[in-house]
């Protein structure tokens, strides 16, 4: 088994000056590429015992009283590049509240904190790679970058596959948000068709009548190649 190489052209480059924070934090020398070794082919696996009952319910998991906002289900599957489901994948999400404010001492935006919204959740994918969260739609908010830059509504996703080389953090955006195309962080991705893979469509088949809307967000991790002709990677 070996990990497919990462297509760096389908990711943002380290240096993306439209996103000013990347300017001093981007390596200027080329990455050293090589074949994944045991250190990248293996990775931590988490059992369901780490999860609490309400970990994937951001509406209730902070105080037990409901958070304010538009109720939504966010669901989807974690797959690899060969379309195989990735079961047992730990997903951690975090987001602003309905007014666009994070529960963080460095966030001083005008919108108030919601006393019943913490802003994080986690779950582990099932045998078919599927997952589900119940949350509220996060608000858009302004941020210091250009003179008037706004983040579109988004949810941060941290994803573990089965190997440390698959480790990924990304963000989910919402279908139809006019701020997506204007966002300097979104625009660190050079290819606009690649951005589309981070935009979750409204999914009325999973919306619950008189309860909540739903959005579908699939996540793809690096493929694990399996062939009887595989060369033994150096160092294994």
């Amino acid at each position: 088994m070996s990990l497919l190489p990462r297509n760096r052209n389908a990711h943002p480059p380290a240096y993306a000056p439209g996103y000013k924070s990347s300017v001093p934090r981007s390596p200027s020398k080329a990455l050293i590429s090589g074949v994944a070794t045991a250190s990248e082919q293996t990775g931590p696996m988490f059992g369901h015992e780490v999860l609490g009952e309400r970990d994937n319910n951001l509406i209730l998991n902070f105080t037990g009283q409901p958070a304010i906002g538009e109720r939504i289900i966010v669901h989807g599957r974690v797959l690899d590049e060969y379309r195989r489901p990735v079961p047992g994948a730990l997903l951690e999400i975090w987001q602003a509240n309905a007014g666009g404010r994070y529960r963080h001492k460095k966030d001083s935006y005008l919108a108030p904190l919601d006393p019943n919204f913490g802003g994080c959740g986690r779950t582990i994918t099932g045998e078919d790679g599927s997952y589900e969260f119940l949350t509220i739609r996060p608000g858009a908010y302004p941020w210091p970058n250009g003179p008037n830059d706004w983040r579109p509504m988004h949810i941060h996703f941290s994803v573990f596959g089965h190997s440390f080389g698959q480790r990924l953090i990304t963000q989910m955006y919402f279908e139809g948000d006019p701020l997506i195309a204007r966002c300097p962080i979104v625009n660190t991705i050079p290819d606009k068709s690649v951005v589309d893979r981070l935009v979750a469509p409204l999914d009325m088949t999973r919306a619950l009548p008189l309860d909540c809307l739903a959005y579908k967000f699939d996540i793809v991790l690096r493929g694990q190649r399996q062939t009887m002709f595989e060369n033994k990677p150096e160092g294994m």
């Binding site: 990711h11 690649v194 893979r197």
Partner: peptide, 21 residues
């Protein structure tokens, strides 16, 4: 008909909320 890895986005300034709340 293979898929391609989802593109990365920065963890941002509030990564601790999600990973080490």
């Amino acid at each position: 008909d293979y898929l391609e890895e989802s593109p990365s986005q920065t963890a941002g300034p509030y990564v601790h909320i999600g990973c080490t709340p």
